[in-house]
Amino acid sequence: MSLLRAVARRVAAGLVVLWAAATAAYLALLAAPGNTVDSIVGDGADTPQIRAQIVTEWGLDRPPVVQYLDYLWRLAGGDLGRSYLLQRPVAEVIGEQLAPTATLAVAAAGLGVLLAVVVAVGTTGRRRRWPRRVSSAAELLLVSTPPFLIGIVLLSVLSFRYGLFPVAGDQGPAALVLPTLTLALPIAGLLAQVLRDGLDRALDEPFVLTARARGVRERAVLLRHALRHALLPTVTLAGWLFGVLLGGAVVVEQVFGRPGLGQVTLSAVTSKDMPVVLAVVTLSAAVYVLVNTAADLTCLLVDPRLRRS
């Protein structure tokens, strides 16, 4: 029962954060200098009809509390509003660009995690000094380099110089390789650092000594005991990972000329298409909360100690 209560508590906390995030986004709209209608119109066509439409849709002629509640209500119903610049519902705009970004994000996350685990497991322990130093340095370099620079360097060497991969576009799996790598490398760098740190700590724990005293193989000690402990703090980074993927997608899609959510966002920002920006931001917060709650629940499953009341 304590497990059920723990799950319920985390889900409730997630909902609260979600509500707060939606409110924050709404406040950002209100805080925009000038008329709210102007903010929503952005750089789009500004006619009395459109303005009237905005006033009706956002309920701007009603009291602020009603406006706010109405906004929450629409959001809860999945209505992301309408872009007056593109003259289309925002959900549609986002929906059709979701697939390429999702593909990119999933591929990059998978590759990043895989690389991190392999590197961290391969370089932990105190016996191997040199591989560890080299990989530490590489990780620091990757984490400290702007992702777009990694992309640009990869692009100029592998695509321009050797022509191994297409320069731009999203045609075929070959076009996915460089963007994925660009996005995955910094992630792998940071995760490997966190993971190795966790492994080192776990290997210093007394239960590792006991496991070794049982005659368990070193590889089993590492994988069966230490890795689980090291993965726990890494799992809590899932929410952050999602943020990096989404933020990274904006940059990477720009560098590689790929269509996707990032491009939509960026052009919405430059043309001040507030409804689209708001929707993307709110949506990303929602997914962040979802991912984070899932990560918390995973920890709850893996670590029985957290299930205590």
Partner: peptide
Amino acid sequence: ALSAFPLLL
């Protein structure tokens, strides 16, 4: 809530 928004966004 504030950190639910990815930095860049």
